[in-house]
Each structure stands twice: as structure tokens, then as C-alpha cells.
Design a protein around this nucleic acid. Structure first.
Lengths: 227, 227
DNA sequence: TTTTGTGAACTAGTTCACAGCT
DNA sequence: AGCTGTGAACTAGTTCACAAAA
């Protein structure tokens, strides 16, 4: 017996979205990057097979990822590039622009603040925060203002900041994360190494540079016995 | 000289290490970070349970990760911090120092070059490469020399560079990766967005900042129905 | 005791393969 | 014809639970 209980309409708004894994959302983001490129070169439709070949992925995987959110494809044709792009931007929540703050105006923080890839995708770095007197009141080269961390809560409200990026020295990371959470921010991208705790309901994503390098180092140390 | 002990570990050198997943190697790196901290504060032994509580991990997971490489623990006691730390550094291949090059001497590249966390863990940024005349011949603030990309192969040999970090604009990424692979480097950490191909036998690890932010944005858009 | 190391059971994630739409 | 959407089968990864060691 097979299930003939078709969902009456498209799945419109998934609630309890914790059922969608982060692996899936990461891939959605990757698909979007590809659709941007396709759209820019005037391609109208694309098949899951064609997308799969770009990255080394399975076509069924792509169809499944997309099917979580609706029936965006047309059988026999594929996906309309512009339409799918629009859907993905909406699914990822970047269709209306997301305001981002960076905590830590050191080398890394300043580099991230002026990284052009963010704005292109709908993220706007609207503020940086630091504790160093000599930095507060200045701006990044591209013009992002640097505030005192003590003004975090105030600026977060005023600028509607949704995501905080942590680029402070390892020793300060947990304190800074606590301050961010206390200011009501619910999503944190952390560049500091080591274990960081966040309160329930706050999403933390860590990009640990040392972990990545060590993973590569492991590959070098073990991955090359045979030609 | 230091300890020349340690005769017998059961599994000594795993060949065909592709059986060890990247999830495992990433965790090994995280454990090492914790062991560094424990060692610094004078703690002698640690149980898998204690480690598991630091990160929100399962103790059996940790024991399994470690057991891939030998029997490092002592039943009823746990793991000796110093000894396990030494083993992990060896397993990850960072016990003898790894030389790293950065391709792209822009904001991000320069920030990475001077990031203190790398050297602390046994990585040494020995060279940067760029194509811009006005950058070549100069150094990062911390003193990393900037070479012409055309000298990559030569410098890679001279400095025994094992890992390349790609911090160039998206459009240049694939070309730069090709050049790196042609120079004989087998491990690449890529900060550019989008799909990049590497030849067989070269390990690529991508840290896509946009993907991470979009993943967080997805969480904000879907994770908070209840006010 | 305590705590490791590990087969067995379980869960999450991926791929296959095909019905069904255009 | 071509291609999506999706249950079923498969694979990878995690957790359980317990024998064995200190």
C-alpha cells in the first residue's frame, strides 16, 4: 500500500523547522550561489542533474532538499532559475536584507566588515563593537562604525541587528557571547576557537580556523600512503 | 631531551585513513583544544564523561573517536591529559609544525596571516602570495613576506609548504586553486564562495562565510515562531 | 569501585528507482 | 520524450549498554 494522502497544497510555511538539518540549509545556500551565476548569464531553466554535476552531488539529494519547501520544479523541464532563486532567497530569509553586527574590531573583524561577498547576498554589516577606547568612534575602511560594546543592546534595537559575528580573542569569546545573547540576538557566527556555550533558543555556528587547518593536517599526515 | 618513552600502542599507523570521517578529525581537534586548556591549568587526568560535558557531546562518541587510534585511556582513571595531548598532536600531524601559505594579500588574507591562534597550535604562516605589484615584496604587519604568485612553486619547495589558504576574490578562486594544485600542494583551505574543483588526491576544505550567514538567517526566519 | 573499549541497536542522511506530470 | 517528487533501500554516524581492566 502506498500513501495516497497527498498534501493538499504546497507546503507553505514549515513550522518546527528543526526537522530540516543544517546540512540541508547549507546546501540550499550553495544552490543559491549557483542560481545567481546562472541567472547572471541568462540561463532560464536548470535541472537537478545539471546542478548536481556542478558540485559533486547527487541529483535526488537536490530534489529532496528543494521538495521540503514546496514543488518548485516542472516535470520534464526542471526548475526556472529566476523563480527558484527567488524562492531560495525567501526560504533563507535574505529577501528582505539581514542586519549584521561584528564584535571585535581587530584584524579579522575589520576584514570581515569590509568583505564584499556579504552585501552582495543581502547581508548588511551595520555596526562593529569593541572595548578599546582608541577604536570606538572610528570606522572600518568601508565605513562601518565602531561602537562601545556597552552600547550593544541600544544599537541592536536601533539597527534591527539579527546576527552577530564574534571575532574577538579566544579568552573573551564566552563573555562576548553572553553579552550578545543578553542583548536579545538569536544567531551568532563565531570565529573564536574552543567551546562556547549559548542559552537555549540561540543558534551558534562556529567557524574554527584551527580545527579546519588541523583537519587538513590530518589528511596530509594520513591520507597519502598510496599514489 | 624530552620523553623518549612510549613503546606500545596497539594500532600504530592507520593506513587507508579515508575510513576516518572528517567529523571525527574535527572533533579530535576540538578535544585537543580542551586538553591544552586542562594541561595549562595543571589537570592530570580527564574522563570521557568530563570532556563530553564541556561540549555537548556523548561520552561514548569521544571514546570511539580516540579508540580509532589506540588505547589511550586507563580504565577506572580516564585519560592522562599530557599523554593524550601528545598523541592527538601526533595523530593530527602538528607535532612537527606545518608550514602554511596564504594566497591573496587582501584584507582577509592579511588578517589570517597575523591570526595568533595558528602559530599557537603548530602552524606557521611562512608566505603570502598576490598578483598586485604594489603588494609583492612587502610584508604583513607581523612580518609574513608577500611573494608573486608566479614564484609559488619555488617558494613552496623552499619553505616546505604543506597547506595553502585561499583568500582571493570569488572570481579568481578556481584559477588560484589550479595553480596551487600544480605546485604540488595537497591540502587547501578555501575562503572563497562557490563551487571549486580540485584534482584527485588534493583535499579541499571550504569555509564559506556566506553559507554560514545564510544558514543562520534560515534559523532566524524559521526557528522562532513562538514569540 | 570507576571508567574504558566496543559490539549491538538506533538515528540521521544519502542514493536508488520508479510513478506520475508536462 | 524528459524531469520532478518521493517511498524504499542503503550507508554513515551516534548512542546504548555491558564486559573487562585498573
Amino acid at each position: 500500500m502506498k500513501g495516497e494522502n497527498k498534501p493538499a497544497a504546497k507546503r507553505v510555511a514549515r513550522e518546527s523547522s528543526d526537522s530540516i538539518s543544517e546540512l540541508t540549509t547549507n546546501r540550499l545556500s550553495v544552490y543559491l550561489r549557483s542560481l545567481n551565476a546562472l541567472d547572471a548569464t541568462g540561463v532560464r531553466t536548470v535541472s537537478s542533474q545539471a546542478l548536481a554535476e556542478q558540485f559533486h552531488l547527487n541529483a535526488a539529494q537536490i530534489r529532496k532538499d528543494l521538495a521540503y519547501f514546496g514543488e518548485f520544479g516542472v516535470r520534464g523541464v526542471g526548475y526556472y532559475v529566476k523563480e527558484l532563486r527567488r524562492h531560495l532567497r525567501q526560504i533563507l530569509g535574505i529577501d528582505r536584507g539581514v542586519c549584521v553586527a561584528i564584535l571585535g574590531a581587530g584584524n579579522l573583524g575589520l576584514a570581515l566588515a569590509d568583505y564584499p561577498g556579504f552585501r552582495e547576498e543581502g547581508f548588511e554589516i551595520v555596526a562593529m563593537f569593541d572595548t578599546a577606547r582608541e577604536k570606538i568612534g572610528h570606522r572600518s575602511r568601508a565605513g562601518v562604525p565602531i561602537y562601545d560594546v556597552r552600547d550593544l543592546r541600544k544599537v541592536v534595537r536601533r539597527e534591527h541587528i539579527g546576527i552577530a559575528v564574534v571575532a574577538v580573542p579566544a579568552g573573551a569569546a564566552q563573555d562576548v557571547v553572553n553579552v550578545i545573547a543578553a542583548a536579545g540576538i538569536k544567531a551568532i557566527l563565531n570565529f573564536s576557537p574552543g567551546a562556547v556555550r549559548v542559552p537555549e533558543g540561540v543558534k551558534l555556528k562556529s567557524m574554527d580556523l584551527t580545527v579546519s587547518l588541523e583537519s587538513l593536517s590530518f589528511f596530509l599526515a594520513h591520507g597519502e600512503e598510496a599514489p
